[in-house]
Design a protein around this nucleic acid. Structure first.
Length: 291
DNA sequence: TCGGCTC
């Protein structure tokens, strides 16, 4: 009901730089109720471009993420992945769209399973929505996916016939401060395959750019943080184990990293039958802090 | 009505 209620009314001012004139046109608006949460999907457009605003509203909280229009199909793909995969093969994904990164993480507690989607961008605080898996196939993730599909399709219908959406960096959305960095090299996701390792795999990564790169994996109740750092003795990888409030670290000079890798590989090899089917590791890549 | 998320 009243799909518009979540739309323009809330505090967001339209284009900050553009001066007067509320310019955000609402092209498509949908709502979805999952358990006691309400999700608003608003495909909007302003002079800077087009974006999908997804808000999660609870009686107490509201949280919003902004997806640039060219990212909608990636969102759709990822939701399809979470809807269609077997429970044991689900793992975290990340999606980089220009200067934003969206993290997709599975979680579970006594209330059930959920998918956490959080948006990190250089200029905004992280914001997160949490989508319950839902108890039947037509609610929760699947319903969310269906709405994404509708909007994705509808957004195609809005394309000007003579103006192909070269959807890229020129579509700036500064409505909610979504700070896209123009002229920053385009980093489109590779293909239908979203891999978590995208940002660390580039081979010729300069050392200067590496410090601050982090990964997190989870195993059972523990989390392991991998942080590249350097000091006057050189570069190192710090591996921290965090469980509850306890933490301890080892510092591994990069000179030992390759052997470390080989030894781990060895143990993976000889324990294969025990760990097969355990894809449980949640891996996350974090971009270096901007500076 | 929840309730999840943060070195």
């Amino acid at each position: 009901m009243e799909a518009n209620s979540g739309g323009g009314a809330e505090g967001g001012r339209a284009a900050t730089g553009g001066g007067g004139g509320g310019s955000d046109v609402e092209l498509v608006s949908r709502t979805l109720q999952v358990e006691h949460k309400l999700f608003y999907f608003d495909l909007k457009e302003n002079p800077r471009g087009r974006y999908l605003k997804i808000s999660e509203k609870t009686s107490a909280t509201r949280s919003t993420i902004i997806v640039p229009s060219f990212g909608i199909s990636w969102f759709l793909d990822l939701f399809n992945y979470y809807v269609n995969s077997e429970e044991h093969e689900l793992f975290s994904k990340e999606l980089q769209l220009d200067s934003k990164v969206f993290y997709f993480d599975i979680g579970e507690n006594r209330r059930g399973r959920f998918l956490k989607v959080s948006e990190a961008s250089v200029s905004r605080n992280r914001s997160t929505i949490i989508v319950p898996a839902g108890s039947s196939p037509d609610e929760g993730w699947a319903a969310f996916r269906n709405i994404l599909a509708e909007i994705h399709e509808a957004s195609g219908l809005f394309v000007m016939p003579n103006k192909k959406p070269s959807d890229g960096q020129e579509h700036l959305v500064d409505d909610v401060g979504a700070g896209f960095i123009p002229g920053h090299g385009s980093q489109q996701p590779s293909s239908s395959e979203h891999n978590v390792d995208r940002s660390v795999d580039s081979t010729g990564q300069e050392e200067t750019g590496m410090t601050g790169v982090s990964k997190v994996i989870r195993a059972d109740q523990k989390r392991f943080f991998f942080d590249l750092g350097n000091n006057n003795r050189g570069h190192f990888l710090r591996i921290s184990e965090v469980a509850g409030s306890d933490r301890s670290s080892i510092i591994l000079p990069l000179s030992g990293l390759k052997q470390f890798h080989e030894v781990i590989g060895h143990f993976v090899e000889i324990t294969k039958d025990k760990i097969e089917g355990m894809t449980g590791a949640n891996v996350r890549t974090v971009d270096p802090p901007q500076r």
